[in-house]
Design a protein around this nucleic acid. Structure first.
Lengths: 165, 165
DNA sequence: ACAAGCGTTTAGTGTTGACTAAACGTTTTG
DNA sequence: CAAAACGTTTAGTCAACACTAAACGCTTGT
């Protein structure tokens, strides 16, 4: 178990615990993070010592939720995967969606007939809280995209001009 | 199934899907959100039509992660539960902890020997991203606590105005 | 002391879901 | 055509876990 394996395992655990994804999915993310270029399904299956079916399923799941991208090469039948460039943006968007769902729930709760003043105050506070966080996250998301654009432009420039740091 | 039941069920689903908690735990949150005062274990068990053991376990779990508070009354052997007043602060703190854990993982990844320039650039970007979000969330948490303090003070004031403590 | 009330622990059950091996369908290559 | 190389689907196994009923331990009241 070298340092790469350790990194992969830790990523697997983190995604398993915090994102509710299968362990193998987390390991795929870890592997893709520290692997240059892209990975084919067979490469990943062998590297992670799991079945091709698991990789196939979990890679698709990760693609579904925007963590990973499938890329194909001309004249090559295989599928390759890599970390999605807008991975972090997607993560923020997902969090935002959850918060909006919660805000909606609270809003519906406030519309109920059978609420005592105490309950109403509680739900008012909750609605306030959700509003603040949603607002903040929305702004963050905007700033975020700007940062990504800048970074992408800079990388492009450094690639065109001199060698990278 | 009245509107209260519907609210409870929706809360249960939300917590189950997004927080990875047992369904009953989510239902407890929903019930406590729309119930004035506090709830005893027996009350919750009967209202939610589940066993006392489940309530006991899940209420403790919720208390453990700061969503719910246990409160006792003098001359009463029973335990009562209510939504923790600093519930939203806790939620933010929990998210922050997860992000810091991820940032740490990335930092360790950058320290690995076997990284190509491409991988290094990828991890640099990830570290950047985590730094930004962590910073933003930390600030938000601070602003948050201030808002809560203000709100608490206002509520306290209105309570004093109406009737002496 | 006995019984009742309370929360917790335990043993057991059912379900869910991750994971695998093997079969499958399709496309490429000899 | 046959065989190999893909990704996917299927059937099945195994482990984790939510949930329950019943037993347990502790405290309080009679």
């Amino acid at each position: 178990m070298d340092e790469q394996d350790r990194f992969i395992e830790r990523t697997g655990q983190l995604f398993e615990e915090t994102e509710g994804l299968p362990r193998i999915a987390g390991r795929i993310v870890g592997l893709l993070l520290i692997t240059p270029g892209e990975c084919s399904i067979d490469e990943m299956a062998e590297r992670l010592a799991v079945s091709r079916a698991s990789i196939s399923i979990d890679a698709r799941r990760l693609e579904q939720c925007g963590v990973v991208e499938r890329v194909t090469r001309p004249g090559d039948r295989r599928d390759y995967y890599r970390i999605a460039p807008d991975h972090y943006t997607r993560a923020l968007e997902r969090r935002l969606a959850v918060m909006q769902r919660f805000a909606e729930l609270i809003a519906d709760g406030r519309r109920m007939k059978s609420t005592s003043p105490e309950v109403r105050e509680r739900l008012d506070e909750a609605a306030d809280a959700m509003g603040i966080v949603i607002e903040a996250t929305t702004q963050e998301l905007a700033r975020w995209r700007a940062t990504r654009e800048k970074r992408r432009a800079a990388a492009q420039h450094s690639r065109n001009g001199r060698a990278g740091s």
